[in-house]
Amino acid sequence: MDNYTAKICATSRASLTVFFLLIGWVSCADSADVVVIVNKSNPVTSMSSAQVSDLYLGRSRTFPDGSIAHVIDHAREAPLREEFFRRINGMPLNKVNTFWARLAVSGQIMPPVTKTNSGDVILAVQEDSKAIGYVEDSPLIDGVVIQVLRLHD
């Protein structure tokens, strides 16, 4: 990554973060749809709730086409994470945390990379052709990443 690209990325990251905070994107997790996103170059265009759930529970490491997936998650206590798991498989956050603690400590699978906000998740998905993440629905993601699943309340 050259200096110019790094500067552009850093500026974009800061701008997205500030924007999301200003419009309260992070805080309105109760009502908005949650969308699962992948990189624009990913040939996968749609996924089922079960396929996404398997990735986020460490039961699968690949997209439906068999290619490796890099799972990006939010912080353990993030409200959006709680909402995501409630909608995708009905698991309460304390069960998810217990589940992942067991997997991580037993060494069965590496835990997902975590990002502190949705802006960082989008940027990470933009930068990694194998990445998958989830954010709240927003016009900002149109054309930037591919939505593979929409989770309604």
């Binding site: 699968s60 490491r61 945390n97 217990t98 603690a101 067991r102 400590v105 037993s106 060494g107």
Partner: peptide, 26 residues
Amino acid sequence: PALDARLGRVGYDVFLMSDHRNLGYA
């Protein structure tokens, strides 16, 4: 993606809780 091979000192894993019994949180 389906195959894991570990070499070194690995957790003894035969019972349900063999490899995470030190993790009370689990």
